[in-house]
Amino acid sequence: MSEVVLQLEGLRKAFGALVVTDGVDLDLRRSECHALIGPNGAGKSTLIHQISGLLSPDAGRIAFEGRDVTHLSQAERAVAGLGRSFQITSILPEFTVLENVALAAQMRDGSSFRFFRPAAREERLNARAMEALGIVGLGPRAGLVASHLSHGEKRLLELAIAVAGEPHVLLLDEPMAGMGRAESATLTETLRALKARYPILLIEHDMEAVFSLADRVSVLVAGAIVASGTPDEVRVDARARAAYLGEDHVAAP
């Protein structure tokens, strides 16, 4: 078994009486794509929020690269190497596409407590940003104000921001949300390439993408993992099918 980079143990989270994370144990191993699927409201995003530090769990432990990060802030976890994307597009709408990504790259390039030199003209940051934009295919849009991008392009920018922060793992919350078929197919290939560089925890409703990318699939229902295994195992798992995989969802092998 390959090395575990991210490990969740007994994670619990409730919003009032609603338990959204119900004793979740989950791990992510070096150079794998682990897909987390489940019906709407299952608690997938909430789980990512707890891993990235946007929300703190009520109980349980999160270990990242052998270190307990349960009590680190969001920023500290990003610095530690937990990169994420958001299900609801979260970009800097007034900045150019390039500046969105350059800001992410800036975090890895020495101190940001520099007060005089124009950041927009720092070639090293811009070059790193262009590299990340190239990976997702947004290079030609670099000069555009981000709010002017199409929905699909914003989803790609979301991903480029995560990549430019030089993460050690990627937590992707429905990167294909709202995308058309063709866009999804292209992004699937992009993610396949990224998989070689980063372990990916992938939340996605697009089953075609999930089953073509994932090395392992876990099924979350009402805050609990009900099935976990290889794509082929999960595809035939009765609990997984009952809970989530309606017949029309099952992708052809």
Binding site: S52, S73, P93, F115, A120, G165
Partner: peptide
Amino acid sequence: GSRFGRVLRAARQNPTRVAAMGYSV
């Protein structure tokens, strides 16, 4: 226009994203 200012301006638009990038807003 500096690195610092860029973080500050970004945090006005979307503090959660800026924190997720690794900046203590």
